[in-house]
Write a protein that binds this DNA or RNA. Sequence first.
DNA 1: CCTTTTTTGTTCCTGAGCGCATAAAAATCT
DNA 2: AGATTTTTATGCGCTCAGGAACAAAAAAGG
Lengths: 208, 208
Amino acid sequence: MRSGTKKDETEKKPRGRPRAYDPETALRLAAATFWKTGYSGTSLDDISAATGMNRPSLRAAFGDKHEIYVKALSRYWEFKFESMRKAFDSGGSLAATLMRIYDASLSIYFSNDDQALGCFVVGTAITEAPGDPEIQRIVAEGFRTLDANFEAHFKLARAAGELKQDADLKALALLASATMHTLAIRARAGASHNDLRKLAQKAVSVIC
Amino acid sequence: MRSGTKKDETEKKPRGRPRAYDPETALRLAAATFWKTGYSGTSLDDISAATGMNRPSLRAAFGDKHEIYVKALSRYWEFKFESMRKAFDSGGSLAATLMRIYDASLSIYFSNDDQALGCFVVGTAITEAPGDPEIQRIVAEGFRTLDANFEAHFKLARAAGELKQDADLKALALLASATMHTLAIRARAGASHNDLRKLAQKAVSVIC
DNA sequence: CCTTTTTTGTTCCTGAGCGCATAAAAATCT
DNA sequence: AGATTTTTATGCGCTCAGGAACAAAAAAGG
């Protein structure tokens, strides 16, 4: 377990003027801006205002608008899968695990203070996907990983006797993914956290 | 059954210069443009090019960009629900009916020639929803109708003995909607028509 | 203490997007 | 045929968006 991501005190200071803003934080704030208004609906000035960095600094740090978005998108997938990994690895029954997964997802989908924004991918990247091969590739790759994660866990559950031996693992995995997708969409469409939690419970009860 | 939508030959001709383009067709072409590149990603010049109308004519016919989009969105919901109604009303087993629904949906999601664009709502309106109360309202209303349609049909199916008497109708309806949502998303993310059809079949087999 | 290096901050330029004002065209009515 | 009405077509002006150039600042190195 490397602890090197935090802050490396042994780093030798670079030569020029120090950065005024932490790149990690700045990218998070940029992502939050895209999350609200989408790729096309967000200007570099919006990101500049959100991060406190001016445009030349943004450009130097992350590249042009498209590069910033792609970095934010990739970062989101990593964050999402890390959150799912924790939920998968905490043990308990299959139903409990699935509800942990959905609760973790909902806590991301409702993480914005004033208004739910749903999933970054579903809410912003899907729109751009047809006209942007790179974004489409990253999105599709993430969905494959999502399906595979569910399927792998259902396989474990079946081995543990929590599912019937003839259960269609792929079918269950697709429904589990579909449930996550519908949560992502409905959150952005204005559904309440509570309603979506109940929706997830009903889905889990059918799947298990 | 009114046949008045086609063309009213008894119409008295209006007084000025006749319209060069059919409003119905123009709105369809405008919607197709939004469908490709989303609300923020589409300019009035794009719509002008797609319809052959120049901007002042567009404005006179449909209002500003936002109004055009809202009209296109409402029109899409009507079209979608009309397509679903036909699929619901064609009889057959529950499984067959559900597959007709999903096939009808996929034929819309893949209706674009060169590249699949998925669902207009999921692919374009969801992005705008948090920042646009009117769009959010139309989207949420459509989802409620979708859920209600499924639930009503499951109720009929249960009465007809196609479902167990203790089946949770709302849960099944939500899963049916979720399946449609995942189809919409995945189509725009680049999945093939065939793969999605197989996905739908697996979902139907679990639900029934 | 001056030079070098890297980042920040300001400014300009070009193009796109949208609304609007005005002219031209094509029809009906008298 | 001329007047009226409704639409199409062209062009102007304002604002915003994105890239790049240039000057100022803040650090380390010699």
